[in-house]
Structure formats: structure tokens, C-alpha cells
């Protein structure tokens, strides 16, 4: 199905983006450590006060992009007692309802993210890097749009491939 294929391709790109963010975040934080231990010991006078701020902002992007990908396989942590203890039909109904609510959640986040990025983000700059905060706030806006996309894909997959949607989250490696 075209939509599922499309989402799959988008997600592949997102995985690459996520990897790039995580690697940069690691290197930037590690650079901060290097400065303190190695450069200092070698008596090299440099400071990179921006490493911490950069890493933090990358982490924020990582959270919203990562969460959108987690939505695709229903990995967002929830308490599924009712879904699995009630009869199959009711369990599926509850699961579908909870996914619908999650979709509504992403709709709200898109609106809030939009307001934050395009109205408040213009007026505020980051303390160290001096970049407009819009660049950081945009993560919520974009992440939630991608999250909605993935929720639709999850729903369509269960309809067309006749998967029992209650168990999608268990097919993946579980996480804390």
C-alpha cells in the first residue's frame, strides 16, 4: 500500500537523522569532557562553552523524532491491563480508542508546537549559542506531525494486514 510504503521511507530517513543527532550529541558532550581533562592537562587554552547547550538541544530533537518513530510500533509506554485481561473484542476496542486519543494528543502538540516555534520562538534566543529558540521549538511541531503519520500507518497496517493491534508493541524488542 502506497501510504505504508511512504511512511516506511520517511521512517528510514528519520532513523538516519536520529543516528546523526545521537552521534553529534555524543561527540559534542565528549568534547566538553576532553576540554576539561585532556586539553587542560596539555596546557592548551580552549573553552567550548557551547558544547553543553548544543547537546541539550540535540537531545530535545532526539526526543520528539524518537517518539514519533516509537508511535509506529506502538512503543509509547502505557498500562495495558484492561487491553489484555478483557475479552478480545473489548480489548481491541480499548486499544483503538487509546490510539485515537494518542492521535488527539499529537494534534494538540502540533498546535502548541506551532505557537511556540513561530510566535514565541522568534523573540527568544538561546543563552550561549545565541540561536533563535525557534530552531529548538520546531522539534515538537515536526515530531508530532510525524507522530500522527505513524499512528495512521499503524492503524492502516492492522486493518489491511489483519494484525491484532493489541500485540503490535510486543513484536518489537521491549524497552524500559
Amino acid at each position: 500500500m502506497f501510504f505504508l510504503k511512504f511512511t516506511e521511507r520517511v521512517n528510514k530517513v528519520l532513523q538516519i537523522v536520529l543516528t546523526a543527532i545521537f552521534i553529534t550529541m555524543t561527540l559534542s558532550t565528549f568534547l566538553g569532557v576532553l576540554v576539561r581533562f585532556v586539553f587542560r592537562a596539555l596546557d592548551i587554552q580552549v573553552t567550548f562553552p557551547w558544547t553543553e547547550e548544543l547537546s541539550r538541544y540535540l537531545m530535545i530533537w532526539l526526543v520528539f523524532i524518537g517518539a514519533s518513530l516509537a508511535a509506529r510500533t506502538d512503543q509509547l509506554i502505557s498500562v495495558e491491563v484492561l487491553v489484555h485481561t478483557l475479552p478480545r473484542f473489548i480489548g481491541i476496542a480499548i486499544k483503538l480508542f487509546s490510539l485515537l486519543i494518542t492521535f488527539v494528543f499529537f494534534v494538540y502538540l502540533t498546535l502548541i508546537g506551532y505557537e511556540l516555534a513561530f510566535n514565541q520562538g522568534f523573540n527568544q534566543t538561546s543563552p550561549i549559542l545565541g540561536i533563535p529558540m525557534m530552531i529548538v521549538f520546531l522539534s515538537m511541531f515536526l515530531g508530532s506531525i510525524l507522530g500522527m503519520l505513524n499512528l495512521i500507518a499503524l492503524y492502516l497496517e492492522s486493518v489491511f494486514l489483519k494484525k491484532d493491534i493489541r500485540f503490535t508493541s510486543m513484536e518489537e524488542d521491549s524497552v524500559e
Partner: peptide, 16 residues
């Protein structure tokens, strides 16, 4: 930046 720059100018290693 004002604080970081001041301390750095004085030769200190600065951690935020």
C-alpha cells in the same frame, strides 16, 4: 556569555 567571557578572559577554565 558575559560571565563566560569574563572568566575565560581571566584565563580560567569555564564549565557551565
Amino acid at each position: 556569555p558575559g560571565f563566560v567571557e569574563t572568566f575565560t578572559t581571566l584565563g580560567a577554565q569555564v564549565v557551565t
